[in-house]
């Protein structure tokens, strides 16, 4: 049984009277212990897909089974419980509570799970240990560097031992060196048996994933080895950029030489 089964997922947004299709028809299966990158430009629908996979949103039509359980039309409270029990989120902008210490931030999802205070503390300490932040437990986010903040966020995602780790541009707000460390952390976690879904627009990141899925205008256009998909993506990107550049050049020269 696959961990994630997406069948003909369609998501349409209604802006006034206009219907805007974000996802046209997505069929993706992700097995346990896979490390998959979702690549695509902004507007390709990768954020929408991530929201649906993360149970933050429900598809307009289609089936989504998470660990064999159909979650495509659950109530709001049930979705909240699925998010709490099955999914660990890592956001681009970390999204830590500024007023709480690292430890309290990591404990937060356990509160919603109903874990007793003592166990909560133990599990949170363990998770922080896992991301090598045992010496920063009582620091508030403002007292931590960007890389450390993202580690706290990852610890918060890991502390519930989720089936799926969902990372949305986790290196987007980090410099390349700390970004690299975070990527290594993800690879390590993957080796330990975690399933990771990484949403990114950076071909370099996707190239290092065992598998990548490329979205264009709400449709899966490539699904395969990370290296190949990233390369194709880069080429496509390159072509597009080149075309845009040529067009701009043409427009400029056109203006200069009537």
């Amino acid at each position: 049984m696959a961990l994630i089964e997406l069948e003909k997922i369609v998501k349409t947004y209604e802006l006034g009277h206009q219907k805007v299709p974000a996802l046209r028809s997505i069929d993706v299966r992700i097995e346990r212990n896979e490390f998959v990158a979702i690549v695509g430009q902004s507007g390709s629908g990768k954020s929408t897909l991530m929201n649906i996979v993360g149970c933050l949103d429900v598809p307009t039509s289609g089936r989504y089974r998470l660990s064999g359980r159909d979650v495509s039309d659950l109530s709001d409270d049930e979705l909240a419980d699925v998010r709490n029990l099955e999914i660990g989120f890592v956001f681009q902008s970390f999204q830590l509570l500024p007023r709480a210490t690292a430890l309290e931030n990591v404990e937060l999802p356990l509160i919603y799970r109903g874990v007793s205070r003592k166990e909560r503390r133990e599990q949170a300490e363990h998770a922080l240990d896992l991301v090598q932040l045992s010496d920063r437990m009582t620091h508030r986010p403002a007292e931590l560097s960007g890389g450390q903040r993202q580690r706290v966020a990852i610890a918060r995602a890991l502390v519930t031992q989720p089936s799926l780790l969902l990372a949305d541009e986790p290196t987007g707000n980090l410099d390349s060196k700390t970004g690299e460390e975070i990527v290594w952390l993800f690879h390590e976690l993957h080796e330990k048996g975690n399933t990771i879904l990484l949403v990114t627009h950076e071909p370099k990141l996707a190239a290092r994933c065992p598998r990548a899925v490329r979205l264009v205008d709400g449709v899966v256009v490539a699904d395969g080895k990370g290296r190949e998909v990233a390369l194709a993506n880069a080429e496509a990107l390159g072509a597009e950029t080149l075309a845009a550049f040529n067009a701009a050049q043409a427009a400029q020269t056109g203006r200069r030489v009537p």
């Binding site: 933050l56 409270d77 909240a80 999802p109 519930t160």
Partner: peptide, 10 residues
């Protein structure tokens, strides 16, 4: 939003 993502109910 963060709390809701982490499993807080309404």
């Amino acid at each position: 939003g963060v709390r809701r993502a982490l499993g807080a109910r309404r």
